[in-house]
Design a protein around this nucleic acid. Sequence first.
DNA 1: AATAAATAGGTGTATATACATTCAATATTA
DNA 2: TAATATTGAATGTATATACACCTATTTATT
Lengths: 156, 156
Amino acid sequence: MYICIVKLEQAIQSSKFKSEVHKATLNILYTAWWLKTIMSSELKEFGITHEQYNVLRILKGKHPEQMCVKDISCRMIEKSSNVPRIIDRLVIKKLVKRADSPFDKRETVISLTQSGITILEITTGKINELMETTVIMKSQDAVQINQLLENLRGTE
Amino acid sequence: MYICIVKLEQAIQSSKFKSEVHKATLNILYTAWWLKTIMSSELKEFGITHEQYNVLRILKGKHPEQMCVKDISCRMIEKSSNVPRIIDRLVIKKLVKRADSPFDKRETVISLTQSGITILEITTGKINELMETTVIMKSQDAVQINQLLENLRGTE
DNA sequence: AATAAATAGGTGTATATACATTCAATATTA
DNA sequence: TAATATTGAATGTATATACACCTATTTATT
């Protein structure tokens, strides 16, 4: 894919945007796709997808505690991800373990396996490296982006 | 879904980010998901998805000319979208027409139908309205976002 | 002109998303 | 306590994404 294209006009072969605001929404959507694509290509050799990586990272945040599916779900970036099925695939690869909750029989609790921890450490290193070399962003710019994006999503 | 949550920390229930840059990448991914979600919910009553809407919009850009699949593909925001199959569904709904190209027998050419034009006009109105009411962005901020996002995707 | 290479579109498979539904377990309340 | 409502996880279906592969056609090379 054409992941080296920088200007939005080139990326989507269009130069007529209704407004700067309209262009910004397309730019956000395109940049998110670009980020997911470069991250996924980094993860590919380890046989995990971007979403599976996301779940592993969330589990890492509580490790060695177990987490129930609901608590993983509400930490996902894409809220409507279907976490039970993502977990299915991680269980098959033996990167996580599923067990019944002793407190609430409706819940299942998930935890990282040793392979899960190992693969997460390696891939996180790779992703961090990628971010440093490919995503050009000064800390000051990042602060600005965070502010602008949180503003556009509404006021509290 | 929780589309009214503004702060990233609340949205993904996490407050430890490695850096502002790391937080910014998550913020971009989350904001893109948020944008797609609110747009899709607007399109739902018309029975079309965000991606189908995207294809219709691209076709509108050249209307009444026909476009081949490749030219639609390279204008898509998400480059790996599978355009032939998105077109399949638009053909079933009679929003676009597919025909053989007279110039190159490998190509198929696509064009909007009258229903396609009509639905596109209505939905575009709805989306524009949504953008005005829900996406809080001054033109000046949009210019900044565009610059920051294009910078982070690299230099030419 | 004959052969090789490239291109356009489509298809197959695995995974993910979006959304509705189901089922068991828990919580609420009357 | 019994009846009702809510919750957590899983499942079913349609659509989309990611990527490999196939076939017909066109272009390039010899």
